[in-house]
Computed example of a mutant assay.
Amino acid sequence: MARKKLAKSNVLPSIDLVNASVDFPIYNARGRSIRSALLQRVGGAVSTEADGVTVNALRDVTLSLRSGDRLALVGHNGAGKSTLLRVFSGAYEPSGGSAEIVGKVASLLDITMGMDPELTGAENIILRGVFGGMTIEEARRFIPDVAAFSELGDYVNLPMRTYSSGMTLRLAFAISTASTPDILLLDELISVGDSAFAHKARERIEAMMDRARILVLASHDPKTLRKYCNRAVMLSEGRIVADGTVEDVLRAYGVEADEDATL
């Protein structure tokens, strides 16, 4: 079972997985399309049993990260990268083995998760803050900064269902990046809004990446991984099959040192 603990001031953030596995049993699978859809979502491999099928999204993953690690996740779609990130975030608990995460985690995987369209923007800021471990008063103090960064103006006091999709994403991004975590999890670098806002968003993400003690970044862009990471692992069918420097793992994946092709 995954255990997530907030770091104390004298404890450095860390991630420790020991033989961690994540399985999704499907007991009444009604055809191949269900299996395919789930595989695209979580990755891994499928095993067929008498009472249904099981998606083995992660299998026996042992991995330790410490302060200063900038980990790149490499692998094809469905290799298990997103599932591993969700284990790091605490969203998924291992069905086998263990995962211990020490420190404040920020996950930019599903930035609109937990937001309620019937609540105002300000109420959603408080809601997400409380979900993240803040008190209501602490979360309320973030409202002015989040409203200013998202450029919502008076809309921050209107129900989120009145927002355009772009406004919703700007609010979600501003909430998700309002504070600096110990551990930052990214599935590709996010681009939000028009060019001016996207530039501002990229600057904020890069600042968070610089300040975070541990960074985990999944990307199909070798240039991005080389720029931000100092270590890499490659996944295939839910297993770690390579662990080393970014260049060594990219080479194992088939990308040479002077290549920037999409993974």
Rank of each mutant, 00 (worst) to 15 (best):
2 A>I: 06
2 A>G: 07
4 K>E: 09
7 A>K: 10
9 S>N: 12
12 L>K: 14
13 P>A: 01
15 I>S: 02
16 D>N: 11
17 L>T: 04
23 D>C: 08
24 F>S: 03
26 I>S: 05
27 Y>K: 12
31 G>S: 02
34 I>V: 08
38 L>D: 00
40 Q>E: 12
44 G>V: 03
44 G>W: 01
46 V>A: 07
47 S>I: 14
49 E>T: 04
49 E>N: 12
59 R>T: 09
60 D>Q: 11
61 V>K: 02
62 T>H: 08
63 L>S: 04
65 L>E: 03
68 G>W: 07
75 G>K: 02
76 H>F: 05
84 L>W: 06
85 L>Q: 03
85 L>D: 10
87 V>S: 04
92 Y>G: 02
92 Y>L: 09
98 S>K: 13
98 S>D: 11
100 E>W: 07
102 V>P: 06
104 K>A: 00
108 L>M: 15
109 L>E: 08
109 L>V: 14
109 L>G: 01
113 M>W: 12
115 M>P: 13
116 D>C: 10
116 D>H: 11
117 P>H: 11
117 P>R: 11
118 E>A: 13
118 E>F: 09
123 E>Y: 00
125 I>F: 06
126 I>N: 02
128 R>G: 00
132 G>V: 01
132 G>D: 10
139 A>L: 11
140 R>C: 04
141 R>E: 02
143 I>S: 12
144 P>T: 00
150 S>R: 00
152 L>E: 01
157 N>W: 13
161 R>S: 11
165 S>I: 10
169 L>C: 09
169 L>E: 14
169 L>F: 11
176 S>P: 05
178 A>E: 07
180 T>E: 14
182 D>T: 04
185 L>Q: 09
187 D>C: 11
195 S>L: 15
202 R>Y: 04
205 I>N: 05
208 M>C: 09
208 M>R: 12
210 D>K: 14
210 D>N: 12
214 I>R: 00
218 A>W: 01
220 H>A: 01
224 T>F: 03
225 L>T: 14
225 L>P: 12
236 S>M: 09
237 E>Q: 12
239 R>Y: 07
248 D>M: 00
249 V>C: 11
249 V>D: 08
250 L>I: 09
251 R>V: 08
251 R>D: 13
251 R>P: 07
256 E>T: 07
258 D>Q: 07
259 E>G: 04
259 E>A: 01
260 D>E: 14
262 T>E: 12
263 L>E: 07
